[in-house]
């Protein structure tokens, strides 16, 4: 098991390194010159030259990459050439906001998906089961930002139950924070919950057909008890895989949702930094998102070995 985890760690590091090359390369070919953006319509060729030098853009790309990656390895994200502030100072508080949003969104997704999926599976040939199944089908079709706009229209503009946007830091009042968190978390969570519910349903349907469940029922357990006792743990493995993918989708969805709800998170910062071509910051944010996704996968891989003893033996 230790070897398996070490191997996964190695894969994690190699993937992260490969991702850093991709991120750096892609961002260097994005049109638009950071020095030009910094100087705007007042730029003269001499001033541009001086600005490029000041921003370190006169260095060749491999040198810039090497400097960046060496910094990253020591946890140093560098200094933004645009704001001339350490990148980490702008990034860290916003990362907290985004993680809170993602956590809440994923929480909503799970709360929606697990009961909905199980009910839809147990009653899959009955009208109400079909209804829940159809409901999740509808949810799959709605993108998170549209859900956000619809929720704002109904609950903020018409009913005035929740604010239409904005954010409160956790220190400034929990109740207020929850009010601001409700709609964005719902917009992220409902859609993903609907997607996830379909996996829960099919996964539960699959285990219902397994021999061991028939054996359990032959021992005298009712179908539902047999499912609860022996089926759900097995059904959880594919659901866990999908949840990990979903978590990354929620993370990316948060980037858009932050715009819709005027939330000062990482996504909002990313879009602002793209506008000003603050490449040190953009690289750092994208890399943090990449690392988060890789980390989620690493954790899920490790969780498999815990949930499924068979994987432990194979390793």
């Amino acid at each position: 098991m230790v070897i398996r985890i070490l191997r996964q760690l190695g894969v994690f590091l190699l993937t992260a390194l490969a991702a850093s090359v991709v991120v750096f390369t892609l961002l260097s070919v994005v049109p638009g010159d950071p020095a030009e953006v910094a100087l705007g319509t007042s730029a003269t060729p001499e001033a541009l030259e001086a600005q490029r030098e000041a921003m370190g853009l006169d260095q060749p790309a491999p040198a810039r990459y090497a400097e960046w990656i060496m910094g990253l390895a020591t946890g140093d994200f560098g200094v933004s050439a645009v704001t001339q502030q350490p990148v980490i100072d702008e990034l860290a508080p916003r990362l907290g906001t985004t993680l809170l949003l993602v956590g809440a969104g994923m929480g909503v997704a799970l709360i929606v998906a697990v009961p909905l999926g199980i009910v839809a599976a147990i009653r899959h040939n009955k009208p109400d089961g079909a209804f829940f199944s159809g409901l999740s089908q509808l949810g799959v079709a709605v993108p998170a930002f549209l859900a956000g706009i619809l929720l704002i229209t109904v609950f903020a503009v018409h009913l005035r139950w929740f604010p239409s946007g904005g954010w409160v830091r956790p220190g400034d009042g929990l109740g207020d924070l929850l009010r601001h968190l409700a709609l964005p978390a719902l917009s992220l969570g409902l859609v993903q919950g609907a997607v996830l519910a379909r996996y829960v349903r099919s996964s539960v349907l699959d285990v219902k057909r397994e021999d061991y469940l028939r054996t359990a029922r032959a021992k005298g357990l009712s179908p539902n008890r047999a499912l609860m006792k022996h089926g759900l743990r097995n059904a959880a493995i594919p659901v866990l895989t999908v949840s990990a993918v979903q978590l990354t989708v929620v993370l990316i969805g948060a980037v858009v949702i932050e715009r819709v709800f005027v939330i000062n998170g990482l996504g909002d910062l990313l879009l602002m930094k793209i506008d000003t071509r603050d490449m040190q910051s953009v690289q750092a944010i994208v890399m943090v998102l990449v690392l988060a996704v890789l980390l989620i996968n690493l954790i899920v891989d490790i969780l498999y070995t815990i949930i499924d003893p068979r994987l432990r033996e194979r390793a």
Partner: peptide, 15 residues
Amino acid sequence: MRPRPRALIAAALTA
């Protein structure tokens, strides 16, 4: 499923 950084950037740019 493996994470795809390119898909990530595409998603960010779509945003």
